[in-house]
Design a protein around this nucleic acid. Structure first.
Lengths: 212, 212
DNA sequence: CACATACGGAACGCTTGAGTTTCGGAACTA
DNA sequence: TAGTTCCGAAACTCAAGCGTTCCGTATGTG
């Protein structure tokens, strides 16, 4: 019996006015918007309340501190990365990283990512959250590449992590530092060049046991 | 006559105790150290003064505000990127980016870069500074690749910016997000894979008019 | 020497922002 | 209706940090 989750009947509700169910979302959205606009250092609870159209007490009734609010807001950005299986490395990797690149490309999301990267360097909890985001996609990518190796599509000596970094790296670099345009074809071009490099390094691997 | 730089004889010095010539460096160093340690949001002038072994008034005698101090401190990180000419793209690019990768790899410098990237999103002056850093190296890289094309070492349809991003991207991505180790060979491996990809894309370009 | 400017250190004024409390009112249960 | 909990808004307390000022002292010029 770890937690008495719903010990009371569902029909029984606490007396008094129920919480505005829309407030949570409005507050979290306002938080993320403001982080993107004015940065983490410029974020104030008063501004969040004003933007969300909410009293400050309403925020503190839901989260104990500004940090807790921020953490939950960032956590809502979590998304289960796709585990693609298109049949080719190229297709799989494109599907896996498309959403991530979109996030870098989008003005608001991009700024958010940069802010969080900086904050994670100081806050262990945020660092852990960031690590989960990154690692989940990375694990999926490793699976894709290993499957490709098993299929004979790639040579067995592929530096998996390097390949993944080469595909995402350009978009990340442009988002964080160079501020060059992150166009939709950036992922494709990077991917094709890397795949060409892999093909050149281990050209025409023996594809003998092709059961398909 | 743009500026009356040294209108007075060098022998003439203002009366009174001269400024401690070592203080400037100590203050700027303390500033950068603290940014790397506690982040920009955690940076306080009092802490800088304490770390530099200096009174707060000494800081404000030199710079009018915390922001001005920070800007100058960051500007000291500027370094003229090398303009290598080793004879091969591979050698040139390695020489060009070695220092940059080192900066990502170093704990202190890496944190500093992340902090500045976030700050640049809010402060136009810092953004301009960052842009200078990046663009200078980028221009040098573009020259290297164009020379390689002229030599016939690379095909004429190389996406110059993409190639540069592919080389730096992995280290940047690891520094900002994935926090995987940035080993000294990361640059070489990325570079070789990209060059292999370029060779595969436009293999054995026609080298007919070789005058050398 | 007088004078001027610098030094480190400490105190001070002032603003900002986190978190709390209060208020009149609204929405729900019993 | 009575009681409870929520609401937005505003006022409040309190701590932190920027920038200034003053002190006693050190180091330069004339």
């Amino acid at each position: 019996m770890p937690v008495a989750a719903t010990s009371e009947p569902i029909t029984t509700r606490r007396a008094g006015r129920p919480r505005d169910p829309g407030a949570d979302g409005a507050i979290l959205r306002a938080t993320l918007d403001l982080v993107a606009e004015v940065g983490l250092s410029g974020l104030t609870v008063d501004a969040v309340a004003a933007r969300a159209g909410v009293g400050k007490a309403t925020i503190y009734r839901r989260w104990p501190s500004k940090e807790a609010l921020l953490f939950v807001a960032v956590a809502t950005l979590s998304e289960e990365p796709p585990v693609p299986d298109t049949g080719s490395v190229r297709g799989d990797l494109m599907e896996l990283f498309a959403g991530m690149i979109d996030r870098f490309a989008d003005e608001r999301s991009g700024r958010l990512v940069v802010e969080m990267a900086a904050a994670a360097a100081q806050d262990p909890a945020l660092l852990e959250l960031q690590r989960e985001f990154v690692d989940r996609r990375r694990r999926s990518g490793r699976g894709i590449l290993r499957r490709a190796v098993a299929r004979g599509e790639l040579g067995p000596d592929v530096d998996v992590d390097l390949v993944l970094d080469l595909i995402v790296g350009p978009a990340a670099y442009r988002c964080f530092l160079s501020h060059q345009p992150i166009t939709p074809d950036l992922l494709v071009r990077a991917l094709d060049l890397v795949l060409a490099g892999l093909a050149g390094t281990a050209p025409e691997v023996d594809r003998s046991p092709g059961p398909g």
